Computed example of a mutant assay.
Amino acid sequence: MTKLEKAMQLAQANLGRSVVRINATAQQEQFQKQKEYSIFGVKNTEDIPDSLINKLRQNEHFLFLTIDKMADLGRSVDIDLVNPLTYRCMTGSTSGGCVNILKGITDLCIGTDGGGSVLAPALSTNLYSFMGKGVGLMLKNGSLSTDGLPFAPGVGVISTRLNPIRKAIQALTGRAFTKTNESIRIMTPASGCMMLPTGEDAHTVLQPILSQLPKQFIIQEHTFADCYNRTALVEEINRLIAADVADLFLTLEGPIDVYSYDETIPKKFEGPLPETLCANASKSFVKAVNICGCSGFTIPHSRLATGFVVTCPCGWEKADMGYTLACELEKLVSLPAIFEKYFINREKYVTPNRFK
């Protein structure tokens, strides 16, 4: 069975769930591709222009297969899909794309990010991602976040590794990431200012990784006033960028949407229940990257639904620095072997009964 045949079988089995539509001409298009092509899906939103998707579709290294489910109304929690790793509601709004990658339908997906809708779903499923607003991958239509912040969505790519993302970004922008040998100033949260939903200090969990980074990376700490208040955090990030005190910001975030759901909508209701539903904030910089006009990478940690967030101020120079750091982080953290077996190598693939 070919790669495409297996992907199409799985896509058919998931129609009406994580898959909205299947490209009817995929089998014909495969003959125009290189032998080792990547299969991709696109978020079910009209905001992504065909001209952008066609850059991938016409590239000999990529084959378009699925329109992927988006969380209803673009919400940051998708009440229709279950996260295959955490058994909780899937993080949105680029939700179906991540599920389809873990199911082995696609190798990567294209999504949009207003306040974390690419970066957060990738974190919640231990996948890699890049959101490229800071390098011009953005949509023209503006909107308001649920907490009243204006933004124009960015476009991003999610995959199982950094290399497919690098190739996709080159196809979409015409420019490839370039590793730099220059010194890179990285700002991380100081001790005590960013607590994870587990009750641990993010600073403490980050230290073993930071200590292994090459000397090229100059680590500096900053006490953020409120890492989980998006309005305050956006203002603080913008202030720090304007002061040019760092090249990149690095945080560890998660587990995403496990202990409770980090969404604004329930918080707008009265009574004690919203505090119960949303008691453990799990999204910090992921909700602010796009609104600050930055680009961002996520790199999965070996912890469940947890990963690194690399925030890159606007421009290709900073994005290249972010890619340099992301590549180092990719070397330092390995995911559990069972994750690789089930979701990357798909060793447990079983042909759906309807196709026997």
Rank of each mutant, 00 (worst) to 15 (best):
P352L: 03
P255F: 05
G16Y: 08
K167V: 02
L325H: 08
A225V: 07
S95A: 13
F343C: 03
R88P: 02
L52T: 05
L233S: 05
A232R: 14
A190L: 09
E5C: 00
A7Q: 03
S159V: 13
D107M: 11
N23R: 03
L52F: 11
K267A: 03
S129R: 10
T223S: 08
K133Y: 04
V99D: 11
I209G: 02
A326K: 08
T160H: 03
H222C: 11
G104Q: 11
R230V: 11
K348L: 10
G114W: 00
F217W: 14
T106V: 14
V310E: 12
E340G: 00
M8R: 14
H222G: 08
A176M: 04
I101D: 00
C292N: 05
G142M: 07
Y349L: 03
Q207N: 12
F249D: 07
N163E: 14
Y128H: 03
P153Q: 12
S76K: 00
F308Y: 13
G116P: 15
G296H: 10
Y87Q: 15
L4C: 06
K167T: 13
H301I: 12
L335V: 15
I158S: 07
T106F: 01
G116I: 07
S159C: 08
I165Q: 11
R230G: 04
C227D: 02
T2R: 09
T306F: 09
R57Q: 12
